[in-house]
Design a protein around this nucleic acid. Structure first.
Length: 156
DNA sequence: GCCAACGTTGGC
DNA sequence: GCCAACGTTGGC
């Protein structure tokens, strides 16, 4: 059982929308490191759902992996946003997983709060300077800390 | 809107 | 194989 973090821009795909739809294909990842992490994912693994590129970036919910890695067909949709001419049926290159809503956190845990936490700061990939990975692993220790924070009252 | 950090591309 | 140029990400 491993823990992960998925970034999404709420303007393009929010946690609200995932709650309405129940589950989704995590397609469109075009970074090899992120893809490789998706290939490591197992059914039942959990991940934080993080809202990026928004006013208050924050972890807002938890998702569960409900289908392990399989070829990302959007790479072969000519004219689509995620088309990649290098991807073929024999060698799809890009992969995706399916995730479903697990739960919403009692409250969002903001990036600012995560940064302030002395235990998380050195270990969370999200907090590394210049980190842009859209799919990343989370240590169990860090997972537990974030869940604890979410159960405390929001600052101010 | 700015800009630092990063990944990828392509010339050599 | 190096590295400059470029495009993208994402916080602020």
């Amino acid at each position: 059982m491993q823990y992960w973090l998925f970034k999404s821009e709420p303007d393009s795909f929010s946690f609200d929308r995932l709650e309405r739809e129940g589950r989704t294909e995590w397609s469109g990842v075009r970074n090899y490191q992120a893809r490789n992490f998706m290939k490591e994912m197992k059914l039942g693994d959990l991940g934080f759902f993080y809202h990026s590129s928004t006013k208050i970036p924050a972890i807002v919910g938890i998702v569960k992996v409900v289908r392990e890695a399989y070829p990302d067909f959007t790479a072969r949709q000519r004219g689509g946003d995620y088309f990649d001419p290098k991807s073929t049926e024999a060698n799809p290159i890009w992969e995706m997983v399916d995730v479903a809503v697990e739960s919403r956190l009692p409250r969002p845990v903001t990036l600012a709060e995560l940064r302030e936490n002395a235990l998380l700061a050195p270990t969370m990939v999200l907090l590394r300077k210049g980190s842009r990975l859209s799919v990343q692993p989370v240590h169990k220790r860090d997972w537990d800390i974030v869940k604890k924070i979410a159960q405390t009252p929001a600052p101010q």
